[in-house]
Computed example of a mutant assay.
Amino acid sequence: MIDERVLTMYKASNKFGAFLEMELEVLEEGQAKYIIEIKEKHLATPIAAHGGVVAGLIDGTLGVAALTIAGKNNNVVSTVELQVNYLKPVKLGDVLTSVGKVISAGKRLLYVEAGVTNQDGVLVAKASGTFNAYPAEKAFKLIEK
């Protein structure tokens, strides 16, 4: 069962996701989805999104998928490694859907994969990441200080 307390703390503290205007949905334990509409603030050129926006979308998706598992033990996660393959350009007005799934979960390390599609179902990026699980109180003690 997903620990809603950890997810609630994550949602409340994730200022980056709010800045990018990403919409989160937890699909099930070990799976998460983020959706983002590419706006002018996301652009690197007059028509194309910055790769960092796509990487941020993916990192968030992978991380929340991992969090749905790590959170069961009152843990949060941090990115240890992120591999992104950009397959197609992302343009102004595109609506991207990133779906991440935990492939392997140990006590401390979780391996997660994701795909990103646009509104036409075209795969625009693939990614994988490794995440470190650690006690939630460590992350949220930093916020209190």
Rank of each mutant, 00 (worst) to 15 (best):
K126Q: 15
L92G: 06
G121I: 10
P89K: 03
R108F: 01
L62A: 14
V53I: 14
E113N: 11
T117H: 07
A66D: 07
H50Y: 15
N118D: 14
A114E: 07
V116K: 03
P46W: 06
L123C: 08
V80F: 12
D120P: 12
A70H: 04
A66N: 02
A114I: 11
L57R: 00
I103C: 01
I103M: 14
K107G: 00
T130W: 07
T117K: 11
L109H: 12
P46R: 08
L109F: 09
V122T: 15
S104T: 14
V116M: 08
P46I: 14
V80P: 03
E81P: 11
G121F: 03
G63K: 08
G100Y: 11
G63P: 10
L87T: 00
V99C: 03
V122E: 15
L96P: 01
L67Y: 06
L109A: 03
G93H: 15
N74Q: 12
Q83E: 12
V76L: 07
A125I: 11
I47M: 12
K88Q: 12
L57G: 02
Q83G: 14
T68I: 04
N118R: 07
A55Y: 07
G52A: 07
V80W: 09
K126P: 03
G51E: 06
K88G: 04
G60Q: 10
G106F: 06
D120Y: 12
V124E: 07
D59N: 04
V122L: 08
P89A: 08
